[in-house]
Computed example of a mutant assay.
Amino acid sequence: MTDLPLLSVRSITRRYGRHVGCEDVSFDLYPGEILAVVGESGSGKTTLLNCISCRMQPTAGTVSYRMRDGETRDLAALTEAERRFLMRTDWGFVHQNPADGLRMRVSAGANIGERMMAVGERHYGRIRASAEDWLSRVEIPGARIDDRPTAFSGGMRQRLQIARNLVTGPRLVFMDEPTGGLDVSVQARLLDLLRSLVAEMGLSAVVVTHDLAVARLLSHRMMVMRRGRVVEHGLTDRVLDDPQDAYTQLLVASILEV
């Protein structure tokens, strides 16, 4: 990790009228670092993720990102075209429901190829070869390249969504409950795949999850949210093994009792 953060979040707040989605959240994310944001349903973690990934306008606060040229830019100051390009190329977003991150009416290969075309690739042979390579990397048989995602299982759809996001070599990936809705055996396989790809590519990631086991397996640091605010923040193993906040202690204890 370098001394300069890739993503800097300062005092991000999002309100819905009188209701607080998230409030006064600040952190830095460094290259190659994985941050897990955990908390129960309604804690504000998904609102925060949407604010820092340009999917939602914060009520207050700033989010800055260090571009590939080394310049740090305030995301609010980017043009809409610049933001869209960033989201299609340098960033990835893995949705809990794969259908939200895939084009269900086109083939698996076309889903991956579409991202490649966003960065200027136009050679059909190279696009198809890369799509086949990425399908194999996410453990989908190459023979399924022309099948639509509607013919895939939930686990295969999620792996296809991961391939679609990673084919452009992004530096930052946002993940919203990436194993949610999958059965336990499929979750374990997907987590192993995610962990190996993240390490291999040196990715930075912000992972939203209610599952502390997912946070322990994937993340270096953890941020615990309750009612829109961060109540604890530190190295993942420290937070899980020696929680300081009463709410974090309750979360950890509830897992241990299962």
Rank of each mutant, 00 (worst) to 15 (best):
A213P: 01
R229H: 14
V207N: 02
M225C: 12
V230E: 04
D211Q: 15
V208E: 03
V231Y: 09
G202D: 08
E200M: 07
L203P: 02
E200N: 07
V224F: 05
A205W: 01
M201S: 03
R221K: 13
S204E: 06
G228P: 03
L212T: 00
R227P: 00
L212P: 00
L203Q: 08
A199Y: 01
V206G: 02
M225S: 09
V214P: 00
G234M: 01
V224Q: 03
V230F: 08
E200D: 15
D211I: 13
S219Y: 05
T209I: 12
V198P: 00
G228A: 14
H233W: 12
L235N: 01
R216L: 14
E232I: 05
V214A: 08
V230M: 13
A205R: 01
L235V: 04
V230S: 07
R216F: 10
S204L: 07
H210W: 12
R227Q: 15
L212F: 05
T209R: 06
A199S: 13
R226H: 14
M225N: 06
V231G: 11
V208C: 11
A213F: 10
M222K: 02
S219E: 11
T236V: 12
L235G: 02
V231L: 12
H210D: 12
G228N: 11
T236I: 10
V206P: 00
G228V: 13
V206I: 11
V206H: 00
V198D: 00
R227N: 14
V224L: 08
V214F: 10
G202C: 09
A215Q: 09
G202E: 09
D211A: 15
L235H: 04
G202M: 11
A199G: 06
H210R: 12
T236D: 06
M225R: 04
G234R: 01
R229Y: 06
G202R: 09
D211K: 12
M201Q: 12
G234Q: 01
V231I: 15
R229Q: 15
L218I: 07
S204Y: 04
V230N: 06
G234I: 00
V207W: 02
L217D: 09
M222G: 05
R216K: 15
E200A: 13
S204K: 05
L212I: 10
L212C: 10
A199T: 08
T209M: 14
V207A: 07
L212Q: 00
M225H: 08
V224I: 12
S204F: 06
H233L: 14
L218K: 02
V207L: 08
